[in-house]
Design a protein around this nucleic acid. Sequence first.
DNA 1: TAAATTTGACCTGC
DNA 2: GCAGGTCAAATTTA
Length: 251
Amino acid sequence: MDINKKDLVETLTKGRDSAKKLQNLLSQKVDDDGLASVGDLVTKISQSFYGGLLVLNSSNSGEFSRVPVSSPCSGDQILAPAKGRRGCYKRRKTIDSRMEVSDTIEDGYAWRKYGQKEILNSNFPRCYFRCTHKQGHGCKALKQVQKLEDGSNMFHIIYFGHHTCPNPPTSSHLGGLDLDCKSHNNLPSNPSTIAKDHIDPSVKQEDLSNKVSSPQSSPALVWKEILLDEFECFKNNGSFGDISFDDIVFS
DNA sequence: TAAATTTGACCTGC
DNA sequence: GCAGGTCAAATTTA
């Protein structure tokens, strides 16, 4: 649960900081460049709240707070699968996880995709990766990647376990985001890059806009709608509507 | 030819 | 029974 709290605090703090920057921007004279910056900040705020809500939701469902369960089929106790059946396994219930919301799924490690699932009420499939060095070094690191549905090119990434393989993250990851995903390794076919393409199917814009206005929209999308409406109001009138930023962010 | 990806089937937890 | 997670055969790629 502590991991969830940390993630949540970090994510919401980003949202708060972005909101403050936006507030400062709006209190100054806004030119065209400023408007572009404001738009970016609104998007960041929306994404931060979305990420925070994801953490909250996953926490409420207990996804990250369960105690690991030992499996009779785990480790050296794995029995030969019965003929015609897949290997015996337990669904993962580890607490050793962390969540990220990022505009790239690159993290400097070499991942091998082992599955993909369509998720209920989600436009984008969830992709499952394990460390490429699982066999060679027994590295048990896993990650799940799913594209956010708020119209941005952000990805919800959940990491499980830690890398035990001698394959440290590349400098490009440590130094910042790598938007074109080309510099991490020289593999001819980068699993993460392929997955990024694959989990980003062409989604009709009208579908996205419908989601924003839908009663079933996520709270984050509602927030984004509010923020964008206020932004439009500011552009048109030079002032906000009935809502203040303190009301939005700090209430 | 080896390694990676795709994808349908299988398995578990709720 | 359903949704999500994993397996592994088939396919693709370099």
